[in-house]
Design a binder for these strands. Structure first.
Lengths: 149, 149
DNA sequence: CAAAAATAGGTGTAGCTACACTATAATGTA
DNA sequence: TACATTATAGTGTAGCTACACCTATTTTTG
């Protein structure tokens, strides 16, 4: 019924969090229902499927705190989708996908694709492309800033 | 040093979550350091400062699950920044800001403004405005869809 | 009016997120 | 070579998020 008070708060962080909450629920309702995993886990599997990396490197790649990755990995290791392999440096733990993980990712792909397509139909392909462009630009600026301390 | 593997995952949900994580850390490092509260809490205070609402209504306004609001409110009620008032309907709980909450919000405002300005300087005012436009369009489409079931 | 349906909100459980701090191993330097 | 520094990863704590399920009150309806 669209009765919005429109307390438009011009905080970029809040606006981003609000949209992200909404979009995450949208994907998870579709992904979890059909494939039994959250979008966060699907994203992690998709990354590791393409390339095995040590923890810190993977965390940086995904724009998350190193310790967050440790926690997110736990249920996926318990599920047998991910394993930690030793690197040349005995301190290093290489995050790798298992055969079971590969299968789960493959099985979830149609549900992810459907969610993505449904979102694009809802917002318009143009708008989604524009959003992606904005996001990539923001991430590029921020990582450059953060990497250079 | 910008050595990016660029595993560009074209998942809108992942991209949004990645940027939101990064931006949230950016704000929280500035807000928490100077004002002792997280951006989530600052946003909540800012909303309730403008308008007291029953729980479900406020949750919808902020694009969050009703039960999430319950949990987020707890530490703020314990801190004495927020109180729940009885509505005409005895089931209803009106979320209201206290004098202490008003003061905390006021004290945090400069740190928030500085973070927001710093982000705009980093990304460019144009880019931030564009991002906000994209976010609002997406939220409008999604809430229309979700409200109409 | 009594039973059914709808509305408002909380709890159990579980995963996501990050800071401060810790442990261990590799590297650099006196 | 011994010691300090750096690099890699984990833990304690605490807040954010949401689904499934529950309670209580109001409204609807037979």
């Amino acid at each position: 019924m669209m009765l919005q008070t429109s307390l438009a708060i011009p905080c970029t962080c809040f606006q981003l969090r609000k949209l992200t909450r909404t979009v995450t629920r949208f994907y998870d309702q579709r992904l979890l229902a059909q494939a039994g995993l959250k979008n966060t886990q699907f994203s992690l599997l998709s990354h590791v499927l393409q390339l095995s990396l040590p923890m810190a490197r993977l965390a940086a790649e995904m724009g998350m705190e190193r310790t967050t990755l440790t926690r997110n990995l736990r249920p996926m290791i318990e599920a047998g989708w991910i394993e930690l392999q030793a690197g040349g440096d005995p301190r290093q733990r290489i995050v790798a996908i298992t055969a079971a993980g590969r299968e789960v990712q493959r099985a979830a792909r149609p549900a992810w694709r459907a969610a993505q397509k449904e979102l694009e139909a809802l917002l318009g392909a143009q708008a989604v492309a524009g959003l992606h462009g904005n996001i990539e630009h923001a991430l590029a600026c921020l990582t450059e800033f953060l990497d250079g301390n």
